[in-house]
Simulated assay, not measured.
Amino acid sequence: MRNELRTKIIDVCEEKIAKKGPNVGLSFYAFFANKNDRPDLLMEVATWWIQTHQLDHFVKAKTIKTMIEKGM
């Protein structure tokens, strides 16, 4: 996954955790605007989320953040 996405995912996870607490869950759509103007990035995250790691639709933000930080 490109660094641009890794940075954005970490930022969004930190923001969600700060606002809603450590048990907040999110889907990969949380990293994109309602009007997706970057389908290539959406597909990259979707592939990482669904195919590579076979994650559920909603996963705790702290789990995703940890995975990204570990380079998974």
Rank of each mutant, 00 (worst) to 15 (best):
P22L: 15
W48N: 03
A46I: 02
W49N: 04
E15Q: 15
S27N: 06
M1L: 00
P22C: 08
T52Y: 00
L42D: 09
K16P: 01
E4R: 14
K16A: 15
G21E: 11
E44M: 11
F58C: 02
L26C: 14
K19D: 14
F58T: 07
N23D: 15
R38Q: 07
D56Y: 06
Q54A: 03
T52D: 03
T63R: 11
V59W: 05
V24L: 06
K35A: 09
D37R: 11
G71I: 04
W49Y: 09
E69N: 11
N23K: 08
L5P: 02
L55G: 04
N3F: 00
M1I: 02
R2K: 03
K20D: 07
I68K: 12
M1A: 02
G25H: 04
E4A: 05
I10T: 05
V24P: 00
E4K: 12
P22K: 09
K16H: 09
A46D: 00
E15D: 08
T52N: 04
L42K: 13
K8V: 07
M1Y: 03
F32K: 12
M67V: 02
I50V: 12
R6D: 02
R38S: 11
N36Q: 12
V59G: 01
A46N: 12
N23Q: 14
K65F: 01
F31G: 01
